[in-house]
């Protein structure tokens, strides 16, 4: 049964390092080391974020579903993040604000830092400060951090549909978004200057 290794196996660290190299390489190759390219998703001049993000999520999702279906992997054996409804929503909103102001997220900022973007170095410094603020002011944040614990729940159960129906709908929605993104990009590019 999968996964092959447990989180505390020494080999897990080596594998994670190699996976990280591949992750960073692909992020940079896709253009995620440019904040203006990333921010394009919010203004309609560049949809690379949507295309890469959803293609990746769907690829992994289908892989996991098939491995589970053929009996190689049990969803109970992999890490699935617990849903703390309000913590996730509020944390996400703060991250969204950080994204539109700073133009990066943690993964992409590390990638941009690696190719010499000074703004990314500053952004990473900011993340350290932010995490430190959270750590020091934990008693203030604790209430919201712990709010709305629903446990390890899955989206198709939340929506009350089958796993297959959800996966199919997600692929359909992604395809519609990919298709729609070309129209928006075309329209915006005519109006706005090419960046």
């Amino acid at each position: 049964m999968l996964p092959f290794f447990s989180p505390q196996d020494e080999i897990t660290f080596v594998i994670s390092f190699i996976i990280g190299i591949a992750f960073g390489f692909i992020l940079e190759q896709a253009g995620f080391s440019s904040s203006r390219k990333l921010a394009g998703v919010f203004y309609g001049y560049d949809f690379v974020v949507v295309r890469v993000f959803f293609t990746a999520a769907i690829t992994t999702m289908l892989g996991l579903i098939f491995l589970n279906y053929f009996g190689y992997l049990n969803f109970d054996d992999i890490f699935i993040n617990s849903t703390y409804l309000w913590a996730t929503a509020v944390g996400g909103a703060i991250m969204g604000l950080g994204f539109i102001i700073g133009g990066f997220c943690p993964g992409t900022s590390v990638c941009a830092l690696a190719i010499g973007k000074i703004d990314a170095m500053i952004f990473v410094g900011g993340i350290f400060i932010g995490a430190f603020i959270f750590g020091e002011a934990y008693p203030i944040f604790k209430d919201i951090y712990m709010e709305g614990n629903l446990g390890r729940i899955l989206i198709y159960d939340t929506l009350g549909i089958s796993q297959g129906t959800f996966a199919f709908s997600m692929i359909l929605i992604a395809l519609i978004m990919f298709w729609g993104s070309y129209f928006i990009q075309k329209k915006i590019s005519k109006k706005e200057m090419k960046y």
Binding site: N81, S82, Y84, A87, T88, V90, G91, G92, A93, I94, M95, G96, L97, G98, F99, I100, I101, G102, G103, F104, C105, P106, S109, I122, F123, V124, G125, G126, I127, F128, I129, G130, A131, F132, I133, F134, G135, F141, I144, Y145
Partner: peptide, 13 residues
């Protein structure tokens, strides 16, 4: 942006 992301990613796990 970095500071906000640092705080937000902790709250949002």
């Amino acid at each position: 942006g970095g500071i906000l992301f640092g705080i937000g990613s902790q709250i949002g796990r």
